[in-house]
């Protein structure tokens, strides 16, 4: 993940720098603002003044280049799956994905008979947090994003050994 990865050995300075980096990442995971179906309404409600995602440092961005988190809010059709994949590939590292709602996690009501629906967005892109619900309330989405922040806090971007 990124050019700094695996470049440093463990020592006290790198350890502290690691924590600083992951803390700063976790407190401003800007999300990519695009909605696919009814879940998008709840995502908008979560970002609006009553639930106010900005108080935990999360703001919507309109370009994948500026976003850290992709919230897949809604039904991913086969036609859209290719475009979701392309958008994910356009995002800069580090990048995270939240699958919001039952359609994005598993196909939802289209589980058995929807020939045109992707059965879970994790088939095309890696997902970090699944938020169940049809659609999930804004509180549920915020819970999911808080879990994502916990995940990011545990990361050690400089000292993590991959592969």
């Amino acid at each position: 993940m990124g050019i700094l990865e695996n470049k440093f050995d463990d020592n006290i300075i790198v350890e502290k720098l690691d924590k600083l980096l992951s803390w700063s990442r976790s407190t401003s995971p800007w999300f990519f603002q695009f909605g696919l179906a009814c879940c998008a309404i709840e995502m908008m409600a979560a970002a609006a003044s009553r639930h106010d995602l900005m108080r935990i440092g999360i703001i919507p961005r309109s370009s994948p280049r500026q976003a850290d988190v992709m919230i897949v809010a809604g039904t991913v059709t086969m036609k859209m799956a290719l475009r979701v994949k392309k958008l994910y590939e356009q995002m800069a590292n580090p990048k995270y994905v939240v699958a919001m709602g039952s359609c994005a996690t598993s196909g939802g009501p289209y589980w058995q008979h929807g020939y045109h629906v992707l059965k879970g967005v994790d088939i095309v892109i890696p997902v970090d947090v699944y938020v169940p619900g049809c659609p999930p309330r804004p509180e549920a989405l915020i819970e999911g994003l808080l879990r994502l922040q916990e995940q990011i806090l545990e990361e050690r971007p400089l000292t993590r050994k991959t592969g």
Binding site: M78, A81, L82, W111, Q112, Y115, L118, K119, I123, V124
Partner: peptide, 13 residues
Amino acid sequence: YHGIVVPKVKEGW
């Protein structure tokens, strides 16, 4: 469809 599996029956998939 473009390498994505279109499942006919969900069981066992």
